[in-house]
Design a protein around this nucleic acid. Structure first.
Lengths: 215, 215, 215, 215
DNA sequence: GATGAATGAGATTTCATTCAT
DNA sequence: AATGAATGAAATCTCATTCAT
């Protein structure tokens, strides 16, 4: 089974980046952890150094300043970790053959709900950065733009051609699916989520209400 | 037509709070504006004082410390502004008679999409606080708990009894609707939203795909 | 019986000062109380105003600034209260006829020990001001200089002429007596003082060891 | 001859404390100097930093806050400096053999009067802290409790056994001696002290009046 | 390179003092 | 005269950043 935990994946991505020293990597890991749980502004560089087990000055040997450190923390998330995540999603879920639209939808929802559950802090960091950091928002946009379209569109077309799915646009599908995922994240945030399998089942059925051809 | 702009509503709420002085109100307004646009941590109290046109010490005459100021900023949002918003939503949208489910859904979506559009910065503040401030999250939860259920449930039951709507639970309806609103907020955040009327039309149709009875 | 409590005496002195308004007097009383217990620097003017039950601005209507207020607090202590104290000491103790030196010494010690006990906070203020405030030190000096000499000297001379007392200088007597009083104050400060009558008895006997003619 | 200047002794004590950095020591020295001359409340941390020749922030790197700094200033005074002072007093004065009570008393008075004269500002700080700082008062008490009794009592007993001294209690001796020292400090404070040798002679004779057996 | 003590700009906070009402 | 809200200078304290070792 493939790894779906962002932090572990993140560390794997880091270890592959040969231009980063061990020290840099430990700083990045510590920063990811603390930025996630406390927010960027509320985390001090000395706290990061302590968590990373390095001297406070060493943080600045590697990263010009705190903002640059944030960029360096977020960069591998896109250039490595998230890319891996996307690829795995494609390989293991989108590219598989499912006997029916129902099973396909449920597989995608299951895959992502578990992902959200396991990577809750990192997602919290990403979302809060998206809300407050305009530069970062730009990077997210560049990363996701068309990232999925070429993967998802063919699958959708196929179900639509089979008349298993009604003819709604790619954008609309993304909107519904994205709304579903954010809703699940919100439920987790507020402690309102029930058993994950029950949530998967319900959310899948809701999506299918919109996706199934209306006769 | 009633006012739906949060900042204006916020000021109206403030003006009704007789226990607040003019100075307190101007500080609260300035703080709301700056916290919204820059975040809580990134806003200094002297910046707030400057924006409010008062002396830096005056902020502390009125509010014990910066954290208390944040509480004081957010309190009227819930105890006044958001309450007004909820009440207006009830009076003007939920309690009106609509000839059909389609028109009802479209009316609700239109109402909220315009609201989101007009109150974008305040919503951004609320969402980022929800993500990073656990205490605040608790207050939000208390405020919204069952706030809608007693307003929305009867309307849904009615449409479901008429067989204009399929039998999905209140929770599921909320999840779909909440996902729709968040998606629209996200589109605005990323500059991806098209013409608001087109967005309303599309999002309403998507919801209706899920709400309409599947024959 | 005469009043020996400094604060009460202070209030009496104030009430006789017709150039002071009621408001001024209440501020002075409050300031005396707070400066005594907390020290001058550690007491804020708004705290004084609150204690006095007046508006904070009113303090400044009466006294140019905080330092001036301290002067105004201390002035009546010398110009009225302490003068009264000195006069009473003279009238009731020094000028009385005592059958023996022993009884005279014990009467003076008793009188002052009770005075110290009852006016502990005010004395604490005076001492701490003497230590830290050079201007004030000057005023104290002016006040006490020769204040006692003309009262005490005749009495001493008389006992010395009678050969009830050995021939030590006025300065030496003052030094021994002052040392005795400060020691008692110190014992009270550190919670080491025993029953006041026992302390009076012991301290009187110690003084008498030095005063009695050595055969 | 051994060093009896508190500030020099203080610096010596500091230099022996290996857990203190040079910077900490210079801050402590500066703080002692300024607290002594101006009082605790009237001294700002930036003033201390300037006097110590360090950056303002460095004060807080070493000491959590201003109150902690005061504690850190006073701690070596008791744990080192005053202890040294007490030990030297014991070694050089109390434990020496003197031909008579007269010479013993004069030696002790001389020793302490010179000590008071040389360490006037530090003593002023200690006294003003004793008056205004309750916590500090407690520490002083702990330090001095029985510190002297076991050193002084045997010497007194010896003189009393020899019938060179009358039988007054240890407590009474301490009271007389303490009163003598405080009186000399007071004279210095008010600029009333004469030549130190004359003061020593007079004060010794006064004490001896009380100590000598009354025939 | 790594360290962590030292820096100093800037943030939060306090409070003596002023002034419109 | 009395008020107390408002002021702003200065104090305490924090923390991103630098630099000698």
């Amino acid at each position: 089974m493939t790894e779906q935990n962002l932090v572990t994946l993140y560390e794997k991505t880091l270890s592959e980046q040969e231009h980063l020293t061990e020290l840099q990597k430990s700083v990045l890991k510590a920063a990811l952890k603390l930025f996630s749980s406390q927010g960027f502004e509320a985390t001090s560089t000395s706290q990061i150094a302590r968590e990373a087990g390095v001297a406070s000055g060493s943080v600045y040997k590697q990263f010009k300043n705190k903002k640059e450190l944030l960029r360096a923390v977020l960069a591998p998330l896109f250039q490595g970790t998230l890319q891996t995540v996307v690829n795995e999603l494609a390989d293991e879920t989108l590219n598989k053959k499912y006997p029916s639209l129902d099973e396909f939808v449920q597989a995608v929802v299951r895959d992502r709900f578990y992902f959200i559950q396991e990577n809750f802090p990192a997602i919290q960091l990403l979302l809060s950065q998206i809300l407050t950091n305009e530069d970062f928002r730009g990077e997210v946009q560049v990363f996701f733009a068309q990232q999925f379209e070429h993967m998802l569109s063919p699958v959708l077309s196929q179900y639509q051609t089979n008349q298993e799915m009604n003819k709604i646009s790619y954008d609309n599908v993304v909107q519904l699916v994205f709304g579903t995922f954010i809703s699940y994240f919100g439920k987790l945030l507020f402690g309102l989520a029930g058993d994950v399998e029950k949530e998967i089942e319900e959310s899948s059925q809701l999506l299918l209400l919109a996706f199934r051809p209306q006769k």
